[in-house]
Write a protein that binds this DNA or RNA. Structure first.
Length: 495
DNA sequence: CACCGCCGTT
């Protein structure tokens, strides 16, 4: 049995080992009937869906005997995250399944995917269906929807949606109020959030979290003085700031480059006997580090250990990142090895930071080694960000073929490229412009649109013009034709 | 997916 005082990072690593050991157990106890899949079913399903074309997909799925359950369906949807149309098709296929009914979480995932493609028609159809099935919509559903509207530049619409939630069978409360404030703030629509806050803080009985959200918003747009005002207001209304409030302000000072103020604030926190936590220290390490104050960053790191506050993986990540940027990758790797020695399990952030650092110094060889290591030693599959870093640096070094190989590797590892991946490759193909490059760019463009991404107008026009100028009229027409079939295309793509 | 820390520059 684990003792109560077991450090969290050790628990985590034990948990990771435990989970990987009981994986095989699960398959023994619950074998999936007609599909003898030694590996995770979710990977197998996602692979099957990605490999079959749109027409034959229903038939293909019909022939299988997967035992659908919400957990499996959610995982499959996650795998299809960067292939919206397939995700939607899969979800809709199961809606017609004779016995299976979707869980609330699967609806939420699918709504998120549809909203990201700006397919609002599907979004609201799904909301209505959710309601009909009595599985929502929940406050979480509305968090997702409003976030996507704000991200698409429709903040006003998002607020209206929040105000009319109850008409969709989901009542507003303090939690959902805080959610919409946070959504607006995180998208830098802080003025709007603050106005909404002032109008409704009475009705929803704004709490400390509401104030923290607004204060954080001001900090995000580098208006720390406004954040301080919010804190004052908070006190005036009888709500005492929390440690989170102080951590928000501390980060705010670093954002505006006010190192002295940050240091003074930190000292004040200590003097007032706030129980300074790992977040406070991580903020300090990162803040000083990005300003190039590596000595101070290290000092704070050592200090936290002395004061008995255990660094987290995030703290190490902060230190490693700033060392990569402002010191040297070699020193960063020393810290990396140290954290491993102490029993921490590096995560994808850790690895991506190191890999980026190595790429930046031109050491692609070692970068690749870390990519292998993350998987083999820490059961941490390279994710799309990992691949994007590698692809970017390969292409920047003029090795576009290697970049395209890496894209191929992603496909084999069932890691789907995202918008960044496509943008990186297409724009680098345009920098090189070797014969054939434009056709490759055209193919990538077609593929990304197929997968529900909206290329920027600039990208789209550049590729089409490029093809037209190099005598690829037929291919240009093909791109246009194939896109006009898919119905849901943004206005600028319709010509 | 109700608040704070760790992958960013198209």
């Amino acid at each position: 049995m684990l003792k109560l005082g077991t450090p969290f990072h050790l628990l985590h690593s034990l948990k990771q080992r435990f989970l990987s050991s009981c994986h095989s157990l699960t398959t023994i106890i619950q074998p999936s009937p007609a599909t003898p899949l030694p590996v995770e079913e979710d990977f197998a399903v996602a692979k099957l869906i990605l490999e079959s074309d749109t027409q034959s997909l229903p038939e293909t799925l019909q022939r299988t005997t997967f035992q659908w359950n919400p957990n499996l369906v959610d995982k499959v949807l996650k795998h299809l995250w960067n292939h919206g149309p397939k995700a939607l098709q899969f979800f809709k296929y199961l809606e017609r399944h004779p016995t299976y009914t979707h869980a609330s979480s699967s609806f939420d995932y699918t709504i998120d995917i549809a909203a990201r493609m700006r397919d609002y028609k599907s979004v609201w159809t799904l909301v209505a269906r959710m309601r009909a099935c009595h599985v929502g919509p929940s406050p979480r559903t509305f968090a997702i929807i409003t976030e996507r509207y704000v991200a698409a530049g429709k903040a006003d619409r998002a607020v209206k949606i929040f105000l009319s939630m109850h008409k969709h069978g989901c009542r507003q409360d303090l939690n959902s109020f805080n959610t919409i404030l946070d959504v607006l703030c995180k998208s830098k629509r802080v003025e709007m959030a603050y106005n909404l806050f002032k109008v409704f803080r009475g009705r929803f009985k704004a709490d400390r979290i509401s104030y923290n959200i607004i204060a954080n918003g001001w900090c995000l747009i580098k208006r720390t003085p406004k954040a301080l005002e919010v804190m004052k207001e908070m006190v005036e209304r009888g709500l005492s700031p929390t440690l989170t409030t102080y951590n928000i302000l501390l980060k705010g000072y670093f954002r505006t480059g006010q190192l002295k103020e940050a240091w003074d604030f930190f000292s004040e926190m200590k003097k007032r006997k706030c129980d300074i936590d790992v977040v406070t220290y991580t903020t300090m390490v990162h803040g000083f580090g990005v300003s190039g104050e590596i000595q101070k960053a290290r000092k704070v790191f050592d200090q936290m250990v002395r004061e008995g506050v255990l660094p987290s993986v995030a703290t190490y990540n902060a230190l490693i990142q700033v060392l990569c940027k402002k010191d040297s990758v070699d020193n960063a790797i020393l810290v990396f090895e140290e954290m491993v020695r102490k029993g921490y399990v590096p995560n994808s952030v850790t690895y991506n930071v190191i890999i980026r650092g190595l790429c930046h110094t031109g050491d692609m060889q070692r970068a690749m080694e870390f990519m292998v290591r993350m998987e083999e030693e820490d059961d941490c599959q390279p994710n799309v960000q990992t691949y994007n870093v590698i692809i970017r640096y390969l292409c920047d070094a003029g090795e576009i073929e290697k970049g395209l190989d890496m894209l191929e590797k992603m496909r084999n590892r069932s890691c789907l490229p995202n918008l960044d991946t496509y943008n990186i490759l297409i724009s680098d193909l345009f920098v090189r412009k070797k014969s054939g490059d434009l056709v490759v760019a055209g193919k990538l463009l077609m593929e990304m649109i197929d997968r529900g991404f909206l290329p920027r107008k600039f990208t789209f026009n550049r590729v089409l013009n490029g093809l037209l100028l190099t005598g690829n009229q037929d291919f240009a027409k093909e791109i246009l034709r194939s896109q006009s079939r898919c119905g849901r295309i943004p206005r600028h793509l319709k010509i």
